[in-house]
Design a protein around this nucleic acid. Structure first.
Lengths: 227, 227
DNA sequence: TGTTGTGAAAACCTTCACAGCG
DNA sequence: CGCTGTGAAGGTTTTCACAACA
């Protein structure tokens, strides 16, 4: 089994490499990359990991660079795509078109990675029939039909916590096998369904903790330097 | 140093325990908890981790249960609070009041954990002076002043990727020591600043990958069962 | 009996360090 | 020379398994 964090790093590498490759996104600020080739330590610093980690990850997906020039940017993007993406593309649906749902559509809408959000759903009839950020919106009653029609196997849950469990059951019943859950609840689903939680409250409390903790560590370091 | 994932699990445990303790949030569905006491395996299943993990975490923060009854819910909530929360409370500010920013305010607004989002900021003058979800909104020019006034040391970055780096520098300069970053960019900040990335694109691609991958694994398991 | 608390083991992930190469 | 590829080492996190206990 491939670890979840490897997959996430690869996804991140690809985005960073894409910015390197496209001229407009890249003002030539960092390291020795010219947009054609990149060294492990440059990619590492852009992705916020160590160079050894990058080399190990590249090795894991079976790509090879050259000691002289580093990695071929386009080639590595391609290899990551082969590893990450479904050969024939993949479809996702989004349930919940509140602020969060719209924000997600705006984020993901512009991307080109073989993964598309093909439909949105909401209990609010006022949102049905509209097209938001290029995504057609339906009432909840159309869920199973639309999912089957598109063969979507990924679902994004952006509804209030009280409804999340119920929504996730409907999604799984309709054929979804991966859930990205924004609700502050752990979903109880069959073990063949993969769930990733984006838990803002938890993340925020964690940041708050380490904002203080790192301050403590800084003072400890200062003390140690004085001694 | 305490690991980031321990902190996140504790934050999650606290939320789950809070739901257990409050009668309205708890219909008595799971396990043997009566709302007063909880066993490690019940808490584990609600939090989606193993019972051994729960016991280890509880041990790490120096709390003790009883073999007969399990953990005292209120007591454990209290102990987690001592561990996670700043003694005098902690203040955070949010930059970027688009859909995502508003969604975050709605999520976090209702919570009571010694951590408050005390102010919001946006470049759009139309949003200045308003109060959204109980949070006063200002123009970017007031950033340093408002942060100093509240002694905020946590910042949430919910602006487009192109502005995130610039915003994070302003926040750090104003005294922020922890950043929760929603922009699809790795922030370059001094090492005494803690950064947590909530990277929706990366999370989504990861879910898509494992939605397929688990399907493969399921078939492999079926094959093995047949053999 | 069924639970907690915990040393020990296992599993996992990251880094080190250096051979090999252009 | 400085880079990649990688075996080996190191570190961290999770689980096992069982003593102690009510």
């Amino acid at each position: 089994m491939f670890a979840a964090c490897l997959v996430k790093r690869l996804s991140l590498y690809r985005r960073v490499l894409g910015a390197l490759a496209s001229p407009e996104g890249w003002a030539g600020g960092l390291g020795s990359s010219d947009g054609e080739y990149v060294f492990s330590h440059d990619l590492a610093s852009l992705a916020g990991v160590s160079a050894a980690q990058v080399r190990r990850d590249v090795m894991t997906i079976g790509y090879t660079g050259s000691p002289r020039r580093g990695y071929d940017v386009a080639g590595l993007i391609g290899r990551i795509g082969e590893f990450l993406d479904a050969p024939g593309g993949q479809s996702a649906v989004l349930v919940g078109l509140g602020h969060l749902g719209k924000a997600v559509l705006a984020y993901v809408g512009g991307r080109r990675t073989g993964l598309r959000i093909v439909a949105g759903f909401d209990v609010d009839p006022a949102k049905c029939g509209r097209v938001i950020h290029g995504c057609r919106c339906h009432g909840m009653e159309a869920l199973a039909e639309v999912i089957a029609e598109h063969g979507a196997n990924v679902g994004l849950v952006a509804v209030p916590g009280a409804e999340a469990q119920n929504v996730s059951i409907q999604l799984v019943r309709a054929g979804v096998r991966g859930l990205l859950n924004f609700a502050p609840v752990r979903l109880q689903v069959p073990e063949y369904v993969f769930v990733e939680d984006v838990d803002i409250t938890v993340s925020l409390e964690s940041v708050a903790f380490f904002a203080r903790h790192d301050a403590v560590r800084r003072q400890a370091m200062i003390k140690e330097a004085v001694r």
